[in-house]
Design a protein around this nucleic acid. Structure first.
Lengths: 165, 165
DNA sequence: TGGGCTATGTATAAAAG
DNA sequence: TCTTTTATACATAGCCC
């Protein structure tokens, strides 16, 4: 429609795409309102543009939840349970990740190392020595900076040293 | 449109309403497809007619659940019940816990310590020294055990030393 | 209920501001 | 980039089958 016919495939020019999106979004929202008023239809329309901004229309006197409940009954698909399962899986994954980090942290702090064998202890020792040398190096660097920058210099800030003032 | 303009209010004649519903339903479904193809939009359209029959359109490469997830994030409204909200909260909590452990682990390994101040570096050094002394003590203990228990003793197992055999 | 058929109103692509 | 304009394509109300 309009000045020229276009074929229905992705609009490559992104500013054209944006303009078309904006216009058609308004158009389809209007159509959604019209059909629900004219024909007593229950409509739920949710649109995300490429920018991520959302637009929605839900028929009057109803809610998205109502529509989704009907959707589940009409389609036989379960939205809640599927969602529930996804969340549970995510939680399991996070908990496992958490546990292993927890253990690693404890080991690095010298806790709960009774069950470790000699090889593992050596690897742990290496990791700690590495960390320690990194930290000491950084400490010395900060210390050198402290000495170079007397208090009052505009490059000196107590907060860099953890001081209160 | 068509042979005469109509105003946007409920069509009282039920057979006209039904015909108009059927036509406009097809129209809006087509529009939904078009905008998602033309503009890369993510669209979810669910329609119930008076008869109760459902029609839907979801953009390709996505699912209603994905759209609803985005809807919740974008609108701040929660669709799933309290149970799901609890699960979501749990996920948030675990993610935060995860993040802070991640950071702590990195620090203990001497990574990402540029932003730490002197006080924090000292605390880190202490923690590392503690861990190291714990690990070394344990190592020596294992070593003493190794010397006491010659190979072949029924109390000796190579696995305790990380050996392959 | 569903599919043609137009005449007509709308939506909108492209251009212009 | 956004709005406005305009010519054109599209959607559809009313009608018939």
């Amino acid at each position: 429609m309009g000045r020229g016919k276009i074929e229905i495939k992705r609009i490559e020019n992104s500013s054209n795409r944006q303009v078309t999106y904006s216009k058609r979004k308004n158009g389809i929202l209007k159509k959604a309102k019209e059909i629900s008023v004219l024909c007593d239809a229950q409509v739920s329309l949710i649109i995300f543009g490429v920018s991520g901004k959302m637009h929605e229309y839900i028929s009057p006197y109803t809610t998205l939840i109502d529509v989704l409940d009907r959707y589940q009954r009409a389609s036989g698909k379960t939205l809640w349970d599927a969602k529930h399962e996804n969340l549970s899986n995510e939680i399991d994954r996070l908990k496992k990740e958490n546990d292993s980090m927890q253990i690693e942290l404890r080991h690095l702090k010298g806790e709960d190392i009774t069950s470790l064998n000699y090889k593992e202890l050596m690897a742990l020792e290496d990791a700690l020595e590495n960390g320690l040398s990194g930290v000491r190096e950084k400490k010395m660097e900060v210390h050198r900076m402290f000495k170079r920058n007397v208090r009052g210099s505009r490059f000196f800030h107590w907060k860099d040293f953890g001081g209160a003032k």
